[in-house]
């Protein structure tokens, strides 16, 4: 397999976009950290005035990504940022680990693909419930998922 980093999707910092406030970093080592990370994510979404449904979507996405870290990479981190652009606020979730990486990203992003008898809906599900999604991974080096949700007017 290729040794280079592969990537799917783009989450580019749009022009005129600025980070707001401090970013939060939740180290992910165990299942308990999954709860902590999604609690933090929900708090941030609530603080930014996200609609109730979107707060839950953000927490759910974090749950999926944090669990993948625990399951496949043993440990890593979830970073939470708030960003502002012209007339909207957003949340950026960055899930990063230096675990085994994913050899075939296309396959990992497919509904139902799982190497752990899971439903295989974590990654594609996060892509569906967030507004922007990017995954990049390098075998033996680790995986980074960046997902973003904008506040609806």
């Amino acid at each position: 397999m290729s040794r280079t980093r592969s990537r799917i999707g783009v989450v580019q910092p749009a022009t005129g976009e600025a980070p707001v406030g401090e970013d939060t970093c939740v180290p992910i080592h165990s299942a308990a950290d999954i709860l902590e990370a999604r609690k933090r994510g929900r708090e941030l979404a609530v603080a930014l005035g996200f609609a109730a449904t979107d707060c839950t979507l953000v927490a759910t996405a974090i749950s999926e990504l944090a669990r993948n870290i625990v399951l496949y990479a043993d440990h890593g981190e979830i970073r939470l940022n708030s960003v502002a652009r012209k007339n909207s606020m957003g949340i950026v979730i960055t899930a990063r680990d230096d675990g085994p990486g994913i050899a075939d990203l296309q396959r990992a992003m497919r509904d139902g693909f799982s190497t752990s008898h899971g439903l295989g809906l974590g990654l594609p599900g996060v892509k569906r419930i967030m507004d922007e999604f990017e995954i990049s991974s390098k075998p033996k080096r680790g995986t980074t998922v960046t997902a973003r949700k904008w506040k609806c007017q």
């Binding site: 449904t53 707060c55 839950t56 759910t60 509904d111 809906l121 599900g125 419930i129």
Partner: peptide, 14 residues
């Protein structure tokens, strides 16, 4: 199941 949770479950594709 809470309304927001129901929406999230469905949108995840579950």
């Amino acid at each position: 199941i809470q309304p927001e949770v129901a929406v999230a479950v469905v949108r995840l594709g579950l």
